[in-house]
């Protein structure tokens, strides 16, 4: 499956969720799955730059859940391992975009968690793109 189609398929599944915090949690969940899978696949060399992504996104998931976000995980379509870097960066872009969207119905805690999610996702994306592998 093409990466663009893959992203559109996930986007269609996530866009049904009403709150921005729910959508941000879903994108973060996907980013975490990809990063964790990349880390666990890279067993011996430890050269995967996903180590900069997985912790920050895991903490983002915790923060959003602590802020009261309750939503189901998304079923993730299969992705070619060769496409993992591009897929992860695109998912992080969607996370930054979604978490940065203002939501009038969000609580103060959810707004803070979304702002923190943007900060962490930006740092994770930068480190993932620039870290030596």
């Amino acid at each position: 499956m093409d990466i663009a189609d893959w992203i559109d398929l996930i986007d269609a599944r996530i866009a049904r969720r009403p709150r921005a915090a729910d959508r941000a949690w879903a994108w973060a969940h996907i980013a975490h799955l990809i990063a964790l899978n990349d880390l666990l696949t890279d067993r011996s060399t430890a050269r995967s730059a996903a180590c900069w992504v997985e912790p920050r996104i895991a903490w983002t998931l915790d923060d959003l859940a602590s802020a009261g976000t309750r939503t189901d995980p998304v079923r993730l379509p299969l992705v070619d391992p060769a496409d993992t870097p591009e897929a992860l960066q695109r998912v992080l872009d969607r996370l930054i975009l979604t978490a940065g969207t203002s939501d009038a119905h969000a609580t103060a805690a959810q707004a803070d968690a979304c702002a923190q999610a943007v900060t962490r996702a930006v740092a994770a994306r930068l480190d993932y793109a620039t870290s030596p592998t």
Partner: peptide
């Protein structure tokens, strides 16, 4: 898991730098 993340980052830094 947080401590394991620290170990993973250290192993990545040692492997790449």
């Amino acid at each position: 898991q947080d401590v394991a993340r620290l170990g993973t980052v250290v192993s990545h830094i040692l492997a790449t730098s």
